[in-house]
Design a protein around this nucleic acid. Structure first.
Lengths: 251, 251
DNA sequence: CGCCATTCTTCCACTCAGTGGAAGCGCCCT
DNA sequence: AGGGCGCTTCCACTGAGTGGAAGAATGGCG
């Protein structure tokens, strides 16, 4: 007689960790998953995942797409709105004004670990090559906001960031530590950061840090098509003014 | 010898349901909770809550405020951004334009059950009596967006909504079913809804439904101070135009 | 229609993860 | 110092959870 269930439990793995693994299986690259995919990505056995998912669906933490795939449910979105949002609330009007005065889509990012995390954006109907998604993460070194944040981190942080193997999303990405360090020094000297097709082909960006007591709490940025790169310099002043306004409101 | 643990388990309550109860204990009125409060609100025994919370904190589903209270963590916010957001993405530029053309804070709401749920807003630095919070819920009948949505629901829904005991947040709130039904008929005739201090003293609102195939998928609204109530009529046209633009983009 | 592959659903004997009241600890205030 | 409140720890016991495998459902193809 083959071993029956109840005897094959994975030692030491709690139910809670399985639930969280299931939730954590969703990300930007996998916003919708079949049950089988979800079990595979989370490492939770299929029948266990099946049971847990049923409960998560009932609570509306997970929902279904029309074609039956699972995705994050509205209730988690609602719950997420209770997370700390003081920066977002304070900064939002400034994003508005920057959008109003420049006509450009603007976004606000913070540093989390070694990535930038986009926490707000204001966008209109103009098509741009890339629209940052709220909640999305990107590497720091090839993004305007990332450079603006990185430039003001402590030396030890910058050093250790530069010592890692740096992603190279485009041929234009600066990954050589010495060159990047010089870029960051220029950011500090100028008070803003620029990128030229370093994150996405066809996209350039400008960004300014939101500094409170000399420390970068966020960065305000915008992205334009490379065809319009020569317009970036005229966008720097309003960008920096808005960033300063946010810093003042936040500090 | 007193009964020991392991023998006092609450029958039939799964770990998952306890985790979800803990998460569900946070709401707009209780965004931050001590462990003891959290246990009480969730109905999970203190020591169990203690254990589960530790795991949730480790995963960053929950975080701590500077004074040690628990609150929803950033990771849940990030996860929540993966929930369906097509409406928000499509509507946002229209909210922008409405803000730009009227100078008023605007918000977008959907109906969920018998409440409105605010899914987006655009706001500036102007102080208004009430600022809707994204993710917040309010009753339908005293809010502009709620009326705009309710007016286009099927008859059976409206009938059953009106048959409930209706909240009365202010003395101006319309709770008498006959009168409310007439309000909704007026909304349908005019194509927009107005409220006068029905939800919040000192606040008036206008809202227009986003109709797709005659069905209300959302409502676009704005709130002004009662002192400026006479300005509402001039706001209706741009409001309706934006709502129509959203409907067109979404349908 | 039949066949095949894939995904999902159901099952259950057994075990160990989970338990929660209560004791004890820590902190704050009077 | 004493009291109150919030938090942390404990552990004998049990029932919630288990997960491989069988079976059902679904979809695509010839």
């Amino acid at each position: 007689m083959a071993p029956m269930s109840g005897g094959s439990r994975e030692p030491g793995r709690s139910v809670t960790s399985k639930v969280l693994a299931i939730l954590g299986a969703f990300d930007a690259a996998h916003p919708q998953l079949t049950l089988t995919e979800l079990a595979a990505r989370s490492g939770v056995p299929l029948s266990t995942a099946h049971r847990l998912v049923a409960e998560l669906e009932e609570w509306r933490a997970l929902g279904r797409t029309p074609d039956g795939r699972l995705r994050v449910g509205q209730r988690l979105w609602e719950l997420g709105q209770l997370a700390p949002n003081r920066l977002r609330e304070l900064a939002h009007p400034w994003l508005q004004e920057l959008f109003g005065s420049t006509g450009e889509n603007v976004h606000l990012a913070i540093r989390d670990g070694v990535e930038v995390l986009f926490v707000d954006k204001v966008h209109g109907r103009r098509a741009v090559p890339i629209v940052s998604r709220i909640g999305a993460r990107l590497p720091m070194h090839p993004t305007g906001v990332g450079k603006a944040l990185l430039a003001y981190e402590p030396d030890w942080f910058v050093t250790s960031y530069l010592a890692r193997a740096l992603e190279r999303p485009t041929p234009r990405t600066i990954t050589e530590p010495g060159r990047l360090a010089r870029e960051l020094a220029a950011v500090r000297a100028q008070g803003y950061a620029l990128t030229y097709e370093e994150m996405t082909p066809g996209s350039c960006s400008a960004a300014a840090p939101v500094l409170v007591d000399g420390r970068p709490v966020a960065a305000l940025g915008l992205v334009v098509s490379s065809r319009r790169a020569r317009e970036l310099p005229r966008l720097v002043e309003p960008l920096r003014a808005a960033a300063a306004g946010i810093a003042c409101a936040y500090g």
